[in-house]
Amino acid sequence: MLEINDLKASIGGTEILRGLSLNVSAGEVHAIMGPNGSGKSTLAQVIAGHADYEVSSGTVTYMGENLLDLEPEERAREGIFLGFQYPVEIPGVNNAYLLKAAVNARRKHEGLAEIDAFEFLKLAKEKMALLDMDPKLLNRGVNEGFSGGEKKRNEILQMAMLEPKLAILDETDSGLDIDALRAVAKGVNALRSADRAIVLVTHYQRLLDYVEPDHVHVLSQGRIARSGDKSLALQLEEKGYDWVREAANG
């Protein structure tokens, strides 16, 4: 589904991704771990198409297409979803309104009619119940004054409504209490299917206890330093990143 080959990308003249390669197939869950500043969010933003990042070489292919040719909104409509590490607040824009606009943008792209207002509300309430989310959040400004955990749940709500083909969740598990973590895991597991792929960027094993990954990668200094199965995450938890760095250098 997603093939990244020798990708180099920089921001503000600083090279962050330095020849990164990664393959994600439909049906798989990948976990990407790695020390702070290693380039995990950068990778996510480049896949989503943030214009501040400059891709200098390498290729990114998504469903057989050159992803780098597409505008961010086109990527989204093609089924790529990014759960942001720091979801931005958009005061004054109703949360439900944005959600509905997003759903309709996707539907339009797929040649479907706009979702009926009643149906939309019903669906949103259903998903919110699943995520144990306060329905009042639907009528607030987008992320406006949301607590850290509420913001993360809101990202998962959007994901659940949009049903992406490729979901990248950038530290959606950080700063969550136990109940919220379970709720988020529930949302992610509900999305798991043979025709979707999920990439979890995380620092902690605890999310992976709930969402079992097929592959685990360690990102270090802009490259995948090591890949393995779920046991790699457990090893990391035990030994820390130095172990990977040493192994990579040695």
Partner: peptide, 8 residues
């Protein structure tokens, strides 16, 4: 960018 990432 946030909105665009949501397809808008």
């Amino acid at each position: 960018f946030y909105c665009r990432q949501r397809g808008i």
